[in-house]
């Protein structure tokens, strides 16, 4: 699997940005913006929410970079900020449920997920598979996971954090991280099987 190591120039950039170098700060943002955006996007499956979280994360980074003591832990520190804003965004969305009409999009998403699952079970998988984008299904499979499992999977599978780093970001034990990964992969496997998405169908399509 892909393993994203801390970019070699990051240490230098962090040190320079902490000393108030705006160019270094902008470079740091450029280096990490895509990663944080994709982290948010995979968590919410929504561009606007991902952008919201990304922008808040980098504003917070800009504001609090001086308080970062260990530059080596920048990656965990940055993902912790992003994860906190993700949780905040989820809470904000839940509060909106007080007025159901304000949450139309998410409700539609859930209905769509359920409808898609039903369609894939009942009809010809090959034909349906040809019509539906794989990416959309993977997105939905990920969204079905409970929030804490989803976040762990994203950090591990897409962001390449080590189990120790994930534990640090989420303030949980390494064993909890492993346990969540185990159950999350089990659920994903089951879900993809239900939709008849496997190595063969992927290769067929590719």
């Amino acid at each position: 699997m892909k393993e994203i190591t801390l970019m070699p120039q990051t240490d230098f950039l962090i040190a320079a940005a902490k000393n108030g170098d705006p160019i270094a700060l902008n470079q740091l943002v450029k280096l990490w913006y895509k990663r944080i955006y994709n982290f948010g996007y995979k968590y919410f499956s929504d561009h606007d929410q991902a952008m919201e979280v990304t922008q808040k994360t980098f504003i917070s980074m800009n504001k609090n970079l001086k308080t970062l003591k260990d530059e080596a832990s920048f990656k965990s520190w940055l993902y912790r900020i992003a994860a906190n804003y993700c949780h905040e965004e989820v809470r904000r969305q839940k509060r909106k449920w007080v007025f159901p009409f304000m949450k139309v999009q998410s409700k539609d998403d859930q209905d769509f997920i359920q409808n898609t699952a039903a369609t894939w079970r009942e009809s010809d998988p090959d034909r349906e598979y040809a019509q539906t984008e794989l990416k959309g299904l993977l997105k939905k499979a990920l969204k079905i996971l409970p929030e804490e499992q989803r976040m762990v999977v994203i950090m591990k599978e897409y962001e390449g954090l080590k189990i120790r780093e994930i534990a640090e970001v989420m303030s949980i034990s390494e064993n909890t991280v492993k346990s969540r990964l185990y159950y999350a992969l089990g659920s994903l496997k089951k879900q993809l099987e239900q939709w008849n998405i496997n190595k063969e169908t992927i290769h067929y399509e590719l």
């Binding site: 895509k34 994709n38 995979k42 561009h47 952008m51 993977l138 499979a141």
Partner: peptide, 25 residues
């Protein structure tokens, strides 16, 4: 099987970021 699930999930490539804003310090 879990390894295969990981391979399947890795088919979701990164999204391109529309605009990366510059920070003015």
């Amino acid at each position: 099987e879990m390894e295969e699930t990981r391979v399947l999930m890795s088919q979701w490539e990164d999204e391109e970021v529309p605009v990366i804003p510059g920070f003015i310090q």
